[in-house]
Amino acid sequence: MHFEGTVDIEAPRDRVWAFLMDPEQVGRCGPGVESIEIVDETHFRARAKVGIGFISARFLMEMELAEQYPPDRAVMKAHGQAPGSAVDASAEMRLSDCANGVTRMDWEADVSIAGTIASVGARLIQGTANKMIAKTFDCIRAKLEA
């Protein structure tokens, strides 16, 4: 599944970058995230509960900041497992300056989902994912614009 979008945040680019590169900060914005564990500078783990339709699963996500070009571009890879399900994702974001102190983030992500969540929630995944992404960015924006 491919997702992409653009988000405008009323905050300077350096601050946006710093926020996004801080797992503790950005991690808290993920819907259903229950805990964050920092492994090293570029690796961290997150536990998150995800519900699709009538099923829900607790995922253990291994995240890696695969590429960083501050304060322009970053690539993150994630692999997560839940009983009977797995998710693999690769996301790229690019920051640029807009007028009036607004930072623009263009992002895209490729996600593949396997197991129970895929077979049971197939019809609902796209919608659920869109909702979760929107929630995440709403949270990031709210925190940065606060």
Partner: peptide, 14 residues
């Protein structure tokens, strides 16, 4: 099935 081999018609709902 999707291209990754996930059975999308995985329940009696589908």
């Amino acid at each position: 099935y999707d291209d990754n081999g996930q059975l999308l018609s995985g329940t009696m709902m589908d």
